[in-house]
């Protein structure tokens, strides 16, 4: 068992044994290679099921929304930024949380591995940066860093921004030359090509709402797509309705999205849904110098008014 997992179990078990928290939220191993499962431990012997590996892609902040208990939470950089969001947005109080920071070396893109290996993957063994993947075609060794998820490859907040203790030493942050090269490429297109790009992007969407439900920002009691009086958007497979869902969901995340990528990790249809939110993250940075979830004392830019706010668009 790897060192980090061992440490995580030890920390969780101690917290529960000492009665410092009511529950610990972390990840357990999934039943298939390259899967993990958000896991709740309320007793110290359950802590032995906790794990940490490169497939803990989902955002655990999604599981603390509105809870009343005292919670210990394992948090990567992005998870911790969403904890900050939650505190700023009054979804949970800081006193309720014992945050165990897990400095992150990036999570692995399961679909990229599937593509590289071909055939069915029957096992995966992780040692440092080395991934040994067993499949119907035999074993191959891959370097983890070549298969990072997009958002992890361009992440500049691998270390948790808020924590009570750490499960491992802090890591060196990446410097990324052009973090928004993907967005800039779309910005250069003609309107008709942009529209085509987004039409093609969502052509497989089945409106299962996994992106929305995996997102820690999407905690509205009733989502606008579920409203029926008034009904803001049609509920069928009409492409304009699907587009409207993605467009408006993204906009609700403007200035709040931490680019944790949970939406994409959850999508069963392999849709690059971050294409919508990435543009807003770029705008938030360029127009307001803002990155979400870094400071519990600051309110997001679309939540406040400042006389210096950019207003060139108003005539």
């Amino acid at each position: 068992m790897d060192q980090l997992t061992e440490k995580i179990r030890e920390l969780a078990s101690t917290l529960l044994k000492d009665g410092k928290v009511d529950m610990v939220i972390g990840f357990a191993d999934g039943t298939l290679p390259m899967t993990s499962r958000p896991f709740l431990a309320t007793e110290s012997d359950k802590a032995a099921q906790l794990v940490w590996n490169s497939f803990c892609s989902l955002n655990l902040t999604n599981y603390i929304t509105g809870r009343k208990e005292k919670i210990a939470l394992f948090a990567k950089g992005c998870d911790s930024r969403n904890v900050v969001n939650h505190i700023v947005e009054n979804k949970i109080s800081r006193d309720q949380l014992h945050i165990i920071g897990v400095p992150c070396q990036g999570m692995v893109d399961k679909k990229a591995i599937l593509k590289a290996v071909g055939g069915e993957i029957t096992g995966l063994c992780e040692e440092g940066d080395k991934l040994t993947v067993s499949s119907s075609h035999g074993d191959v060794e891959l370097n983890k860093n070549d298969y990072l998820r997009d958002n992890c490859a361009t992440c500049t907040h691998r270390n948790p921004v808020i924590y009570d203790e750490l499960a491992a030493p802090l890591v060196e942050e990446q410097t990324v030359e052009e973090p928004f090269a993907d967005v800039a490429a779309i910005e250069k297109m003609e309107p008709v090509d942009k529209a085509r790009y987004f039409d093609n992007l969502i052509k497989d969407c089945i409106r299962c709402y996994a992106c929305r439900n995996a997102c820690p920002l999407c905690y509205c009691p009733t989502c606008f797509v579920d409203e029926s009086g008034p009904q803001w958007v049609g509920k069928g497979q009409n492409p304009t309705d699907i587009q409207t869902f993605h467009f408006l969901r993204a906009f609700h995340c403007a200035g709040r999205c931490t680019d944790c990528g949970a939406c994409e990790a959850a999508c069963p249809m392999d849709i690059h849904v971050r294409a919508f939110t990435r543009k807003l993250n770029k705008d938030a940075l360029e127009l307001f110098g803002w990155e979400a979830g870094l400071d519990t004392e600051k309110r997001p830019p679309l939540d406040t008014f400042n006389p210096d706010d950019p207003d060139e668009f108003i005539r």
Binding site: P191, K194, A195, F198, F251, L280, F313, R315
Partner: peptide, 20 residues
């Protein structure tokens, strides 16, 4: 919002904001 609309292929000139 105007920016995201434009990003998704709506011509910028279709959306106007004014304070009157």
């Amino acid at each position: 919002m105007a920016n995201l609309f434009e990003h998704m292929g709506l011509e910028k000139e279709r959306l106007h904001f004014s304070w009157i």
